[in-house]
Design a protein around this nucleic acid. Structure first.
Lengths: 158, 158
DNA sequence: GTTTGCGTTCGAGCGCGCTCGAAGCCATAG
DNA sequence: CTATGGCTTCGAGCGCGCTCGAACGCAAAC
């Protein structure tokens, strides 16, 4: 199945791993483990953002969140799933503006599926370009570290 | 030699190429091709930043630039080399603050070489982490594109 | 019964990295 | 001779994505 291939490729391309990616992979491959509903503190903790940021996302129209009898936010599974998506997209550099547009499309119904796919594909390409940029900068940095001669020519290699 | 290995690895990890990386590789591997001195417009063009940005970097103390009889900036080879380094570091996410510190260290003399290397190594690790994050987000995005079911479960996979 | 703690709303403020506009100087083109 | 264009300095402004503070509500703990 394509699913396994994609995950396998992702894992393979990570090389020697660290705590960050292990955590992230768990989240990527384990979309369950989400309680029926959560408080803002629990959601913030799960998503690794601040409660302030979650309120900000809600204000920005990215996600609707219900309230309990006390007026406190109640994050149900759907809200958390959407926020997992949103935070991942933010982490990979998609602007708030685009995310606002994307959720508008979702709310607009099935007709917008093609446009949504276009957005995802464009984002994918953007991320790929960014990875290439960073890979190149990484190589340059490793080169500089490896050949660091000291004083006389601090930028001579660059 | 280690140099060839590093470059080979960088090239290999780029996969199928595009105009961006080809351009970047040329710059990476061809540190010559820099005239004896350049105007701000030529430097901006070479470095792919605006003249405004170059003046800003100078104001920020990142690079010293000489003037000609008319008061116009003259970017000599050393300045351009430093700016190539600086813009690469900026592109890979190093904050202005750190770059200011780095150039302060360069100006402070050979005693600071170890600290400079520490900074480069830390930056290298930061870039590696970022690449891993992006690789993961890329996999998630590709997964979503591949499995996009449409309306009912827009975030069900995330 | 008061303190502690977690939540609420609203709006302002901030850190970053540019980005731009105004006013002026100088040289070459028409 | 005058426009045009590219440069100069200076300081202000901006877009982004949060981040924070103030003032308040409610509930469980001591």
């Amino acid at each position: 199945m394509a699913t396994d291939e994609l995950l396998a490729r992702a894992l393979a391309s990570l090389g020697d791993d660290g705590p960050v990616s292990a955590e992230a992979i768990r989240r990527l491959t384990d979309p369950a483990a989400v309680p029926e509903s959560m408080t803002i503190a629990e959601a913030a903790d799960l998503l690794d953002v601040s409660a302030h940021t979650l309120r900000y996302y809600e204000r920005a129209g990215l996600v609707a969140v219900a309230r309990d009898a006390l007026g406190h936010r109640v994050y149900d599974a759907a809200a958390v799933r959407r926020l997992v998506f949103l935070t991942r997209m933010r982490l990979s550099g998609m602007p708030m503006r685009d995310l606002q547009h994307y959720v508008d499309l979702v709310d607009a119904g099935a007709d917008t599926v093609p446009e949504r796919l276009d957005m995802l594909i464009e984002h994918r390409d953007t991320v790929r370009r960014r990875i290439r940029e960073l890979t190149l900068s990484l190589a340059a940095t490793e080169f500089k570290i490896a050949t660091y001669g000291g004083e006389a020519a601090p930028e001579s290699v660059e």
